[in-house]
């Protein structure tokens, strides 16, 4: 076990009214475990609370109750070596006024590397994610969405964290770039023994990259699929819906129109 999420609850106050204070519960007791070296998919519809759960795990949002426990091996590491994140919205994930080089070296600031070593590392990382070294002097607006998302991935892997949260990391990319980025992620995971928590609402993407999938609905984990071959036999209603939607799309594309 690398990360253990234990019965997390989280609610937000809705409405600023003085008289009527009501709370909207977004996470209703979420528990699961993430093992070392695996990619765990968190699949759920929009608004089900996936991103909120991600923020709780990263420690930038406090849960109302429950806790996130990291394995002893990593719990004492400084946070930049422990975990990292790639957000869905790549345009606001990077400071528009910094160059690519500075963006990627932000997590290296707290390492012992010398200035030259950092530069070297940034060059390596850029090549690693399939960009050219010449891009390091560019500003974010001079990159395409796919390139920018790779910069975010490069930044995420720069300090060699044990665990990376990928919050819809490929959802806003077009299908061909999506496939490239997914391959890149699979490759990096193999080589560096990373663990991913992969948040998505796209079942095909989840099936492509993940070892296990949690199906998340309305603030709860409603089903856990350990063997992806059994995905088709999911019992939960929502999971079935997702699957049939995926099959429908697949059929529409693979069967020639009569």
């Amino acid at each position: 076990m690398l990360v253990s999420v234990q019965n997390i609850r989280k609610s937000f106050a809705v409405g600023d009214s003085w008289f009527k204070k009501s709370r909207h519960e977004v996470l209703k007791g979420v528990s699961f475990e993430l093992f070392e070296g695996e990619c765990l998919g968190l699949l759920g519809e929009s608004g089900s609370g996936k991103s909120t759960l991600g923020k709780v795990i990263l420690g930038i949002e406090n849960p109302d109750s429950g806790e996130v426990v990291f394995a002893d091996a990593i719990s004492d590491l400084p946070s930049h070596e422990k975990m990292s994140v790639v957000f869905q919205d790549y345009t606001s994930s990077v400071n528009p006024r910094l160059r690519v080089e500075e963006i990627i070296s932000e997590p290296l600031l707290r390492t012992q590397l010398t200035h030259a070593e950092k530069k070297q590392k940034v060059n390596e990382l850029l090549v690693e994610v399939g960009l050219s070294e010449s891009m390091k002097t560019r500003f974010p607006h001079q990159l395409s969405g796919g390139q920018l998302q790779r910069v975010c991935i490069a930044r995420a892997i720069a300090p060699s964290p044990k665990f990376i949260l990928l919050d819809e990391a490929v959802s806003s990319l077009d299908v061909s770039v999506q496939a490239q980025v997914l391959d890149l992620l699979a490759n990096l995971k193999q080589r560096f023994g990373l663990s991913y928590l992969f948040i998505t609402h796209d079942i095909t993407v989840a099936a492509y990259l993940c070892n296990r999938i949690l199906i998340f609905q309305d603030g709860k984990v409603v089903e856990q699929v350990d063997d992806l071959n059994n995905l088709a036999h999911a019992t939960n209603n929502y999971a079935k819906q997702l699957l049939s939607a995926a099959h429908f799309l697949e059929r529409a594309f693979t069967e020639p129109a009569a």
């Binding site: 400084p78 957000f87 994930s93 600031l109």
Partner: peptide, 25 residues
């Protein structure tokens, strides 16, 4: 902003956030 959330996640030092992220913007 997501880039600040990122900085918070990896706990970048405050003065970096202030001088590189905040003031220029």
């Amino acid at each position: 902003q997501n880039y600040v959330l990122y900085s918070n996640t990896i706990e970048t030092r405050f003065h970096y956030k202030l001088f590189r992220h905040f003031f220029p913007n």
